[in-house]
């Protein structure tokens, strides 16, 4: 039926920091830049606030992918906290892979308050990437999915 012909519409939860990336989203809005409606944003004060639990909770709760977004390295409103987000991002990617989730379902995006266009473009790109991955498939075993650059560590 029509349901089947419709392309898969992923649901993505996005975390933005209050200072750069949420403002990039605002900027995209003010400039009426159009992008895919699949991302729902949650504002944190800083990407450093991102508890890995949030990402796993979103995936567990039915999101097909998660976007983590903050200020560019060096531009963090709280000086260096986005580096902590970046470290956690790499950690989470690895954990997700071990859990059987494709690492492509987690994306890190740096966007300054002026980069509405980049924010919009990257969301469009991400939505297409996740669309290509298809709905989250929990049945897949962790080992089947290769981890870029971290294979040795994961093998044990």
């Amino acid at each position: 039926m029509t349901e089947e012909t419709k392309p898969f519409e992923p649901v993505i939860i996005g975390f933005t920091c209050n200072w750069c990336s949420y403002r990039a989203a605002d900027m995209a809005g003010i400039a009426r830049m159009k992008y895919a409606p699949n991302v729902r944003l949650i504002r944190l004060m800083c990407s450093g606030r991102l508890d890995p639990t949030f990402v796993f909770k979103a995936i567990a709760g039915g999101a097909d992918a998660v976007l983590v977004s903050g200020c560019h390295p060096g531009d963090c409103h709280y000086s260096t906290q986005n580096y902590k987000a970046m470290r956690r991002y790499h950690l989470m990617k690895r954990v997700l892979t071990q859990m059987g989730v494709e690492p492509g379902r987690l994306k890190l995006l740096w966007a300054s308050a002026a980069e509405g266009q980049i924010f919009a473009n990257e969301i469009n790109k991400f939505v297409e990437e996740v669309r290509a991955l298809g709905p989250l498939n929990w049945n897949q075993a962790g080992a089947e999915i290769p981890v870029e650059g971290a294979v040795e560590e994961v093998k044990v």
């Binding site: 649901v11 939860i13 639990t53 909770k57 979103a58 709760g61 039915g62 999101a63």
Partner: peptide, 18 residues
């Protein structure tokens, strides 16, 4: 920006999806 607030917001955002 407590854990309860963020985790509930995630749930809320995904309510329709579920």
């Amino acid at each position: 920006f407590s854990n309860e607030q963020i985790l509930s917001q995630i749930d809320g955002l995904l309510l329709l999806t579920l």
